[in-house]
């Protein structure tokens, strides 16, 4: 009995609920005769394309700016780079990497500007960053209307501006997913995607162990300790914010290629929340995170969503039950983390 209690304590009550729910979904999947290989393929893709967005949470939490609710800032930079890559017809895997490269300067600039704000609002980062993210999305809505893109395939045939949804078939639809993809027992394994994601995880993992990473970690874990050891806390927060923004930009490009289209205008508005929820489910807290948390969380959260969709559809064909489940789970876990955060301080 005591060991059960201990397990609940170390693992966290909401995480157990999510595991139980995931288990239930898997059982339901078999009961409802939902094609298993297809669902697993879906799972793998969803995990892969969401991983980098979740990784973007790592630098912020390390450096003590908390969960980066301003992820849409990076996402908008990524989208802008994506649009440029489409405008100039960059295709295939090369196109994807080109888009990633183009996004970096935008993200660095935006991240730097935003970090200047973050360093001035210590203690209220989460609230400010949420609304900075929101305002950037709204501002870029105007941008998508006004920016001088001219490629006929991406702008509206009549009227101004870019289309709301741009299908990537012409350029790099699922290029990474299909790269080296193999099929085992009917499950499509997107080797290319997994390799790229693995590379990103490895780089971030190495970064966390590096001189700079350890400086950042100290700045987040104990700013006074950092200062006493000659670490410039504000600079670390700046670097972390820039890094997070860059990862947000790259993340959305990987997401879009795997998803098959870019979604502009209001689509990025809420994209920070699933990423945050994923790392929290993986066991991160607003002040502590590891790559393991990111990977485990993304796997659990995205598989849950991937399996919930067909299960929900076969139970209740109308309405979007899986969307509702996503809302409840992702916001529930964030609320739980927030209430824990204070508990730890007391």
């Amino acid at each position: 009995m005591a060991s059960v209690k201990n397990m609940i304590k170390t693992f966290g009550f909401p995480r157990l609920i999510i595991i139980a729910f995931l288990g239930l979904l898997i059982v339901m999947m078999f009961v409802l005769h939902i094609p298993v290989p297809l669902t697993f393929s879906q799972c793998l893709v969803r995990i892969g394309i969401n991983m980098v967005l979740a990784l973007a949470m790592v630098p912020g939490i390390m450096a003590g700016t908390g969960m980066n609710f301003a992820l849409p800032l990076g996402i908008e930079c990524g989208l802008l780079a994506g649009m440029i890559s489409l405008q100039y017809n960059m295709k295939g895997v090369g196109g994807i990497f080109a888009a990633m490269l183009i996004s970096v300067p935008f993200s660095v600039l935006a991240g730097w500007a935003y970090s200047q704000l973050v360093n001035r609002v210590k203690g209220s980062e989460m609230m400010v960053s949420t609304y900075i993210g929101f305002s950037m999305v709204a501002l870029m809505c105007i941008g998508w209307l006004m920016l001088p893109f001219s490629n006929a395939s991406i702008v509206w045939p009549i009227g101004d501006g870019l289309r709301t949804t741009i299908t990537l078939e012409e350029w790099y639809d699922r290029a990474l997913n299909n790269l080296f993809a193999i099929n085992i027992l009917g499950v499509d394994i997107p080797i290319g995607l997994i390799l790229v994601i693995g590379l990103f995880c490895l780089v971030i993992w190495l970064f966390m162990k590096s001189h700079l990473g350890l400086m950042m970690k100290a700045a987040g874990a104990n700013p006074n300790f950092a200062k006493a050891n000659g670490v410039k806390v504000d600079s670390m927060r700046t670097v972390a914010t820039i890094l997070s923004t860059v990862l947000g930009g790259i993340g959305i490009i990987i997401y879009a290629q795997g998803f098959g289209f870019y979604q502009l205008y209001n689509a990025p508005l809420m994209m920070a929340f699933p990423a945050i929820a994923a790392v929290l489910i993986g066991g991160a807290t607003p002040s502590r995170i590891s790559i393991f948390n990111v990977v485990l969380g993304t796997v659990m959260f995205q598989s849950m969503l991937a399996i919930a969709t067909p299960v929900a559809n076969s139970l209740i064909p109308e309405g979007n039950l899986s969307e509702v489940v996503r809302t409840i789970v992702s916001n529930g876990i964030i609320l739980y983390a927030l209430s824990r955060m204070q508990g730890g301080k007391r």
Binding site: A221, N222, K227, R288
Partner: peptide
């Protein structure tokens, strides 16, 4: 100021020298 409580003895001890 003196410690990173959630880190190992090793990291704490060599932190300044490393930095």
């Amino acid at each position: 100021v003196g410690l990173l409580l959630n880190e190992s003895i090793a990291l704490n001890m060599v932190y300044t020298d490393m930095k």
